[in-house]
């Protein structure tokens, strides 16, 4: 099954994305305990795109494609902003955040913890969009 949606780059649309994704994941009987983890990854990533790729320019567009098969969910997020490769960021681990609590910096550790794989394809002559691909395995 496949599902596509797009929003403009405004954090007020995060709820819309989560609601649409929750509905799709329920329809495909995705493991219930993992739904929240998928929502967190998508929420964190889109928040980062809005802030760091689009610098909160709410005229810009973010598109999401979700594809499922028997035991795997693939989510591809398309943006045309500045490159933002999650894999390039070395951030504190969640354990380090717990030892020395402070605001911010949890989003990328959440993505790396909850997604089974992350791939990044920067825009090129072939594609005007940066594409970030997350995969999740349903137990």
């Amino acid at each position: 099954m496949k599902f596509e949606t797009e929003i403009t780059a405004d954090t007020s649309h995060l709820l819309t994305i989560r609601e649409q994704l929750t509905k799709f994941l329920a329809e495909i009987n995705f493991e219930e305990d993992k739904i929240l983890q998928v929502l967190l990854v998508v929420d964190e990533f889109i928040t980062n795109i809005i802030k760091y790729s689009y610098h909160e320019d709410s005229t810009k567009v973010i598109r999401m494609e979700v594809t499922s098969d028997t035991d795997q969910l693939m989510i591809e997020i398309y943006d045309e902003g500045e490159a933002f490769n999650v894999l390039d960021y070395q951030t504190n681990t969640i354990e380090e955040h717990i030892k020395r609590p402070h605001k911010g910096g949890l989003g990328i550790p959440f993505m790396k913890l909850f997604a089974n794989s992350i791939e990044y394809f920067p825009k090129s002559e072939k594609s005007k969009s940066n594409i970030t691909r997350f995969k999740f395995i349903s137990n």
């Binding site: 995060l14 989560r18 929240l36 929502l39 967190l40 929420d43 964190e44 928040t47 955040h97 609590p101 402070h102 605001k103 911010g104 910096g105 949890l106 989003g107 959440f110």
Partner: peptide
Amino acid sequence: DYISSAGFGVFMEFIE
């Protein structure tokens, strides 16, 4: 109903 890293971050900001 839902908490993201930004929500966790609020508690992390002030706990110490």
